[in-house]
Amino acid sequence: MTIDLRPACSDDYVFVLDLYHKAIKPLANAWVDWVDEEQEAQFANLWRPDDTKIITLKGEDIGWVEFRRTGDEVFLKQLYITPKRQRQGIGSQVIRLLNEQARTAKSMALFVLKNNPAFRFYQRHGFEVIRETHTTLVMRRAMAEAA
């Protein structure tokens, strides 16, 4: 099963927002009173289609990833895969593709909610906690490490 990453466009917004809500709302409810309208406004303000790729499998949109290169580091802002496609190695393929696209970067960093099961996925890919806040863990790994 091989995935592709295609550039996001404005037509992808509904898919991206829906998947974000399904993934984050149950986790964020532990810390905030989730109000759909407020979260949608915040998401609309922060979403960067130029930094976003849609994850596809045989032409079907199955997820999305947002990342940005800043200096010597790649910041993995968001990675979401539809529930029916999770735990099939797709996230690992995305990490490998990001590694290939950012070969000259020295490190990759991300934030993950403390109660997000994806924390273990990132650990398996060599990310280590370097700092934490009330709600999130800041993780980093050297790009030379195997994904």
Score class of each variant (00 low, 15 high):
Ala105Asp: 04
Arg48Ile: 14
Glu73Lys: 13
Gly59Ser: 09
Glu60Gly: 03
Ile54Arg: 03
Val129Cys: 00
Ala30Ile: 09
Ala118Leu: 09
Phe67Arg: 01
Gly63Met: 10
Tyr13Gln: 11
Phe121Arg: 01
Leu97His: 12
Leu97Ser: 04
Ala118Trp: 09
Pro49Cys: 01
Val94Met: 11
Glu128His: 13
Thr56Asp: 04
Val65Thr: 08
Gln123Gly: 02
Asp36Leu: 01
Ala105Lys: 00
Gln42Leu: 05
Gly126Ala: 00
Val35Thr: 12
Gln101Ile: 02
Ala118Ser: 10
Ala30Trp: 07
Thr56Gly: 10
Leu57Ser: 12
Lys53Leu: 01
Gln86Asp: 09
Gln88Cys: 15
Gly89Phe: 14
Leu46Glu: 13
Pro117Tyr: 02
Arg87Asp: 14
Asp33Arg: 13
Leu19Ile: 03
Tyr122Lys: 01
Asn115Ser: 06
Ala109Ile: 15
Val16Met: 08
Asp18Tyr: 07
Trp64Ala: 07
Ile54Asp: 08
Phe121Ser: 00
Asn115Ile: 02
Val14Pro: 05
Asp50Ile: 06
Ile90Glu: 10
Lys22Cys: 06
Arg124Asp: 15
Asn29Met: 15
Glu100Asn: 07
Gln93Ile: 04
Leu79Met: 13
Asp18Met: 08
Gly91Asn: 14
Asp18Ser: 09
Phe121Leu: 06
Gln93Met: 05
Glu40His: 12
Lys25Ala: 11
Ala118Ile: 05
Asp72Val: 14
Val74Met: 07
Glu128Val: 12
Ala28Ile: 10
Glu37Met: 00
Asn99Met: 06
Gln86Thr: 05
Glu38Phe: 13
Ile90Pro: 05
Ala105Trp: 03
Ala109Glu: 07
His21Phe: 13
Val35Gln: 08
Ser107Val: 13
Arg85Asp: 09
Ser107His: 06
Phe15Cys: 08
